[in-house]
């Protein structure tokens, strides 16, 4: 049994434009995440990767298919049981500032999962753990008194990480956790996430559009395209011998920071390059 098991997940959203076709965000997605590993889900906009990240946490309900954590089907849980289960599964968002309540102090934000799930802890114990969590993500204890707006983007994302790990989850969805950050900050956050994973034995589902990032952090990669996983492979294998034509297109679109490695972009029939050349109303 794997830690996370997704089977035949389907999800369709009504069209945003009047009279448009419904958006089929997930079209039969199945995946496994083992305890302690990082599975990256890579795809471009409209691939359904963010929908998948939320469906795995049951932040949205699937049309059909199942998600199991520790063998427990999340759809079978009552609202109360599901809330309790959320201590084991957490999420870090792409937008660090937007994901923090602007009216709450950093301390209150990080303390919240404990207040929800650990009613057995006294306020002194909660405070100690909040300070530990903040130090764990490289922030000083006195950050607790500040408001989200007073921190830099990198610091805000560290708060997001502290909040995600304080309830000691087994599984964390990382939804593009570094894509809104500057390059040097990005490297620090990735290193922090890797360190935390080793210490706590966490499993990550790393949702990303960036091949460079995914290459560095993942054990395995699942490539999503138009609501389907077209290829799943160990990271090294995927880069060495991509099997699906779309994976090859994605790899060829990477721009190396070394000018000696010239890229040669190869478009792939039926991919975004073609969609891109058709007015949005005709896409589908």
């Amino acid at each position: 049994m794997s830690l996370v098991e997704v089977d035949e997940a389907f999800k369709t959203f009504p069209s945003r434009q009047r009279g448009g076709d419904p958006v089929r965000a997930l079209r039969g997605v199945s995946l496994r995440v083992e305890a302690g590993e990082t599975l990256a889900v890579i795809g471009e906009s409209g691939s359904g990767k963010s929908t998948l990240g939320r469906a795995v946490l049951r932040l949205l309900d699937l049309d059909s298919g199942s998600v199991r954590l520790d063998g427990v089907d999340l759809a079978s849980l009552s609202p109360k049981e599901l809330r309790a289960k959320r201590a084991d599964m957490q999420i870090v968002f792409q937008e660090p500032y937007e994901s923090l309540n602007p009216r709450m102090s950093i301390g209150a934000i990080v303390a919240e999962p404990l207040q929800i799930h650990r009613s057995d802890l006294g306020s002194t114990e909660i405070r100690t753990r909040v300070h530990e969590a903040l130090e764990r993500v490289g922030l000083t204890g006195n950050t607790a008194a500040r408001l989200p707006g007073e921190l830099s983007g990198g610091q805000q994302q560290r708060v997001g990480v502290a909040r995600a790990i304080i309830s000691q989850p087994k599984f964390v969805v990382l939804d593009e956790p570094t894509s809104s950050l500057d390059l040097s900050i990005r490297a620090q956050i990735l290193a922090l996430l890797a360190e935390i994973q080793q210490d706590l034995g966490l499993a990550y589902l790393f949702v990303s559009h960036d091949m460079h990032t995914v290459e560095k952090v993942s054990d395995r990669i699942a490539v999503m395209y138009l609501g389907e996983i077209v290829e799943t492979a160990p990271t090294l294998d995927l880069f060495r011998s991509p099997q699906h034509a779309y994976t090859r297109t994605l790899l060829s679109a990477r721009l190396s920071a070394d000018p000696r490695e010239k890229h040669a972009y190869k478009a792939f029939q039926g991919d975004t390059s073609v969609r891109d050349a058709v007015p949005a109303g005709e896409q589908g």
């Binding site: 990082t38 390059l183 040097s184 990005r186 490297a187 990735l190 290193a191 890797a194 994973q197 080793q198 460079h212 990032t213 290459e215 560095k216 952090v217 054990d219 990271t235 090294l236 880069f239 920071a257 070394d258």
Partner: peptide, 13 residues
């Protein structure tokens, strides 16, 4: 150096 490079693959983790 903060751009992930191919050679460094999995050195970090």
């Amino acid at each position: 150096s903060s751009v992930p490079k191919r050679e460094e693959l999995h050195d970090v983790i």
